[in-house]
């Protein structure tokens, strides 16, 4: 996938690019409004990560320009401003998703995957990972053509890990993904363990390889190793 990262904070931009590149994406970047508008006009991207507060302009204007040029790039707004109004404005201007800083890179990666999938498959989306076949629409999982029943949270988790395959995903990121911002319960880390344990068991029982690898209690890695 070809991704443009429009972000003026260099450290963050570098990290995002490193993480996404390691997943096999091609990343381009812009650190200011002018640079971004030039790149948007010149090239096509699968997904654009757009920071709204740029030193020399409002990111929402880039979004408008993009729509005027009839570009079909997916856009995920990444911003520190969490106002509801701005969120609605951004989404109504055609952004596909809205991510508030700070976020986990794994979350960003999952969102990018979802946006790109929505745009390119247009309804018929199937995620395949080795013997796993996931139908996003009907929320079903097939292992070796056998249906495996998953709870909604388990389904979400599996998709999340596949979006971040071969990466270590922190428990903290998983908690935020599953329970959102409001859940800051101290015990939520334990539930992640329980959910993953259940999911892992279901997959193995269905004849799937064990793709989950625990990393010293800090996170998990979903990989075919």
């Amino acid at each position: 996938m070809k991704i443009l990262v429009v972000e003026d904070e260099e450290l963050l931009r570098v990290n995002i690019i490193d993480y996404l590149t390691a997943e096999g994406n091609v990343c381009d970047f812009a650190s200011c409004f002018d640079e971004a508008s030039e790149k948007i006009a010149l090239y096509d991207y699968d997904c654009i990560l757009l920071d709204l507060t740029l030193p020399d302009g409002d990111g929402l204007k880039l979004l408008q320009a993009l729509k005027q040029q009839n570009k079909s790039d997916g856009v995920i707004i990444i911003t520190a401003r969490s106002s509801v109004d701005q969120r609605i404005e951004g989404l109504s201007l055609g952004a596909d998703d809205y991510l508030i800083k700070p976020f986990h890179l794994s979350e960003l990666s999952a969102r990018i995957m979802a946006v790109v999938r929505r745009r390119s498959f247009k309804g018929n989306d199937l995620v395949v990972f080795n013997e796993l076949k996931i139908d996003i629409q009907s929320k079903t999982l097939k292992v070796n053509n056998e249906t495996v029943n998953l709870t909604r949270k388990e389904f979400d988790l599996l998709l999340y890990f596949i979006a971040n395959k071969s990466k270590v995903v922190s428990k903290s990121a998983v908690v935020t993904h599953i329970w959102g911002d409001h859940a800051d319960m101290a015990d939520s880390f334990d539930f992640i363990y329980t959910h993953i344990k259940n999911l892992r068991k279901k997959l193995i029982d269905a004849g799937c390889k064990d793709y989950f690898h625990s990393v010293y209690g800090v996170g998990y890695k979903f990989a075919d190793e």
């Binding site: 450290l11 963050l12 990290n15 993480y19 800083k101 700070p102 986990h104």
Partner: peptide, 20 residues
């Protein structure tokens, strides 16, 4: 929020290192 985002991203990157 932006510095926290950087810290978060750095942590996510550190987590990827092979010899943790």
């Amino acid at each position: 929020m932006t510095p926290i985002a950087v810290i978060n991203a750095k942590l996510d990157m550190m987590l990827q290192s092979e010899d943790l």
